[in-house]
Amino acid sequence: MTTAKSDEVAGQGPAAPATPADRRERERMRRRAARRRGGGWWPYLFLAPWFVGLFGLTIYPMLDSLYLSFTDFDLLSPAKWVGTENYSRMFTDDPVFWDSVHATLLYVVVSVPLKLALALGVAMLLNRDLKGIGLYRAAFYLPSLLGGAVAIAIVWRQVFGGDGLFNDFLGWFGIKGQDWISSPDSALYTLVLLAVWQFGTPMVIFLAGLKQLPKDVYEAAAIDGARPVTRFFRITLPLLTPIVFFNLVLQIIDAFKTFTPAFVISNGTGGPLNSTMLYSLYLYKKGFTDLQMGYASALAWVLFLVIAGFTAVNFVASRYWVHYDD
């Protein structure tokens, strides 16, 4: 399972405005392409490698998993059709499923807003012309590069363990810590903290957005005597809503799919007491440890529908709070 797909956006940023010259060029290209459309198999030949990947590695396995989700399949013997049994079992006869839903929703609801707030805060601090600012930006982005790495999760396990650094730190203030990873009440929050720490990707996107905000509005506000707090809530935030929305959508999707840290920090168990049993981890355990690949496929499709649902709601709700310029 890949992580941090959203990293790819970082380099693109919002599209540059089209000048009249650009538009003329584009029109010419379009006409030329239309002329060639007659002898059309060449382009497909060049696209073939990509199509092979798309169909062989994405579309076919997806459709296969849709089929498998209606079967009893243990990976080792042929799949048996069982209709919707996997889906009904999930909702009526599987308490661990509900544990994992609970852990995942809590994780998403807590980690995403914190991460975005931190990302925006740091982006605002870094949005100024200081000497060596590039260095600072790189330093703050660094944790995200390490992001999905197993090594970081292992470090986390040590830091928040019973005799870890975090408890040493608390010890300086006379606070007696506990084993944060092994207590069902705190284990999930160590995962949240790890996610929040990796705020680099949304930060870079926020930074790109902040740089595009019109200076004249701020000048006008300064003349009218608006304070920094007012400027933030009345100008920066409203103008930035498309970026906030964009980050929100991506981060929610990412958070739903979180796997590696939960797997490593809980040592593959999702424990203690299923408190770190994030949905993807449960799905993996069902498929590859308990050999219930049919059930795992059903879980994957439910996750897909839930993510699609959340994203759709997000888009609908965005009409009421996101301000576009076009």
Binding site: K5, Q12, S65, F73, I253, S297, A300, L303, F304, T311
Partner: peptide, 23 residues
């Protein structure tokens, strides 16, 4: 924004989660 977001959403969720489950 919409195009990028939905593209990533589809690539991300479908690609990794679902494809990982087929065998």
């Amino acid at each position: 924004l919409f195009r990028t977001a939905s593209g990533l959403a589809v690539a991300g969720t479908l690609g990794s989660t679902l494809a990982a489950c087929a065998g």
